[in-house]
Structures are given as structure tokens and as C-alpha cells.
Design a binder for these strands. Structure first.
Lengths: 201, 201
DNA sequence: GGCCCGGCATGACATCCGTCATGGGCCCGT
DNA sequence: ACGGGCCCATGACGGATGTCATGCCGGGCC
């Protein structure tokens, strides 16, 4: 009997996936959480074998939760199950010690198999996404560039970003210009979009 | 026996919700589609009583699918089930003849009840969202303003937007300026974000 | 020790953007 | 018929933005 934890901020999806996996005779959902920072405690308490983690979650995102599990509960394997198949997500997930990466586009029948494979020590990776990840490559952005770009994401002005980041306005503009150049964008907003789509945020 | 259709672009979610609802003795999922423009045909073919529609779908969005159902298969009721609880979505969904509106944050146990209520002719609306919808009000944006703002969403330059919309650059700037003013934003990017969050796209 | 890269900053410049005034055409309600 | 709202456009102005050159500091790496 494989003991599972579900982490997803959407209660409906959580419950539905639980119903789906409980149909399998060898799988058992023993815990559900809606926040990333509740994962480690729940995994410990319920002796979880495999944790299914969404990426977009409040508190702690799924990739960070996978890293926390690797460090603090190494007996539990992580399977990332996410809406967005962004190349950067896959890379970071594997770096964080996740054993698998599945997008929510995949047919429901394959999820149980993915869980079993992860539990048996195999790696499960969406093949299309693996190719995309190799094609796109790692993020060309520097830490500060990514940070400033993230601050620019909600549409603030340069002065506002400079205030939030405790930087000079000129420096902010330099970072933005650099990020625009590296992403091949023509506007700061386009750079934000490209970086988002690639998972470089 | 209530006959259901599921429309969601994420196959995994579709299958999971189907598993969840098939647990109920009086509910039966008889069709699943991944595109909005396949809804009407599937509803007709399988004599569906209630259609569960996601908003974000390729082909035709869930709200438009609900409107199509109202016009062409009035015997079938629509229940919008969506990720984003945006006030404008609710308003447009009700205008399109949907009988219910549920966000994916709600507990899984309530979904079956929502389906039953919709089937019996009642309206089901998330109460928090109803309040937000009244507070926020309808979109202050004009058709063209919304259109131009949507084109600006992916970070293009004014010239690019003007080209796509067959408008003068000055006109584009006027519409953007007007949209910025109406949304209370300080930047075009911020106006895009606000309009998105409110479902004014 | 030299070299490169990243973080941080300043200054200057051309361009783009947001705003405002103004005008014309169209349709709708009264 | 008049007013008002939306659609489309032009022109001008100030400020914001993107780019470039340049500089200083610190930490790896050969």
C-alpha cells in the first residue's frame, strides 16, 4: 500500500485527485494540505511514501517543498503535478530533488502509474517538457535581474521598483535593460512575459 | 440519474472530477471534452442534464459555451467551475445563462450538491464572489479600450498594437490612457493586471 | 597577481509613453 | 433637434523608459 500526500491550493482539485487515486487498490491518500509550508509536517505525521506537489501554492511553492522534503524527510519521494509546463520549473524541480514531473494536461489514467514508478525509485518526466527544457536552456538572468523583473511584473514604475529593492533608479533601469536584452524582448512587459513562460521567475 | 458533461482543458482534472462525481449514486459523467467548441455537440449526443464548464478553454471559453447551450440546448443547465474567482467572470456567466458558478477553491464535498441544486432549477453562486461582484461593479472599459488593453497584455509596443488593431498610434495611446485612468492604474502594465484580476478582459 | 563576471552606481541621450486639447462622425435617447 | 457617449484621429508637451559608456568594488579562477 503506497501512502500518498496531496498538496494543492485548490480544494476541489485536491478532493477530485484523491477520489481518482483512491480507486486504485494499491494507493491510499492519507493526507491533504493546501499550503506548501504544511507539507513536511504532514508527511512526517502520516508516514507518507510519495508526495504529489503542485507548484503554485501559498506559503511555499511546490519546488521548495520538494527541496525541504529531500533535506528533512528523505524517505519520502516527490512528484510535481502542475498546471504550467514551463521548462524552468522542470529544471528547478529536478534540482530540488523531485523524482517526477507531470503536467495536468496528461490523461488521468497515467497518474497512478507515475506514482507507482516514482515510488519504486524511477524518475518520471514529461517527455515533451524534457525536450523543451533542453531547447530553452537555463535562465540567462542574473539573480538581481530576475528579482527586479519580478518586481516589475505587476506594472510598477521604475521609482517604485527602486524603492522596493533599495536600489538606485539608474541601476533598476540597467537591470531591466539587461533583462530585456537577454530575453530578446523589446519592452519590459514583454520580458516579464517571456521570463514567466519559461519559468525564470 | 443526473447525466453530466465535463469540459476542462486539463485532462487530469477532468478525469479526477469524473472520479469524484461518479462516487455519487445519483450522478453519472457521460461525456468529457477538452475544448469549448465541442460542448454543444457532446451535450446533444449524450442527452446531458448538467454541463460543468471551465472558463479557460481553447476554442470557446466556458462562458461562451454556456451561452451557446442556452440558445441551442435549453434543456441542459450550465455550471461554471473555474480556477479564478474574478467578479467579471461571474457577471458574464450569469448573463450568459449559467445556472451556477463555483470556484475550484471550494471543498470537493460541495460540488455534488451544487450539481444537484443546479439540476433542480436552483441557482448556485459562491457568496464571497457575489459580494465582490457587487462591490467591484461592471467593467468601466469600453469595447475598444478592453480590446486595445488585451493587445497590450503581452508587452507589445504601441506601434505593434496599432498595427494589429488597424488603428492610429495616437488612438491607441488615447485608449490606453483612458483605460489607465478608468482602472486607477499608473502604468499600462498595471492597468492590464487590474483588468485581468477583475475579469474585464 | 591579472582577468572576468556580477552587483551597484552615475550621467547623457534618443525614443517612447501618458496626458491633454481639439475636432469630426456616428448612433441613441429624450 | 439637441445633447451625450463612443469611435477615430491629429498634434504637442513633459516625463518616463531603454540604451550606452564609464566607473568602482568584491569574489572566483587560472
Amino acid at each position: 500500500m503506497i501512502r500518498l500526500l496531496l498538496a494543492d491550493d485548490q480544494a476541489l482539485v485536491r478532493g477530485a485527485v484523491a477520489a481518482l487515486l483512491d480507486l486504485e487498490p494499491d494507493l491510499e491518500v492519507v493526507a491533504q494540505v493546501g499550503r506548501g509550508d504544511e507539507v513536511v509536517d504532514a508527511v512526517r505525521e502520516h508516514a507518507v511514501d510519495v508526495a504529489l506537489l503542485d507548484v503554485e501554492m501559498p506559503g511555499l511553492d511546490g519546488v521548495a517543498a520538494a527541496a525541504a522534503l529531500r533535506d528533512r524527510v528523505p524517505s519520502c519521494r516527490s512528484l510535481i503535478v502542475t498546471t504550467f509546463g514551463r521548462p524552468g520549473y522542470l529544471r528547478r524541480a529536478l534540482d530540488a530533488g523531485a523524482s517526477g514531473f507531470v503536467v495536468k494536461d496528461t490523461p488521468a489514467e497515467l497518474l497512478a502509474d507515475a506514482v507507482r514508478r516514482v515510488h519504486s525509485g524511477l524518475r518520471v518526466v514529461d517527455p515533451d517538457l524534457a525536450v523543451a527544457s533542453l531547447t530553452v536552456g537555463a535562465s540567462p538572468l542574473t539573480d538581481r535581474e530576475a528579482h527586479v523583473l519580478a518586481l516589475a511584473a505587476d506594472g510598477g514604475t521604475v521609482a517604485g521598483i527602486a524603492g522596493e529593492a533599495y536600489l538606485s533608479e539608474g541601476t533598476v533601469r540597467n537591470y531591466l535593460s539587461s533583462a530585456i536584452g537577454k530575453t530578446g524582448a523589446r519592452t519590459r512587459a514583454e520580458a516579464v512575459r517571456i521570463a514567466r513562460d519559461n519559468g525564470w521567475l
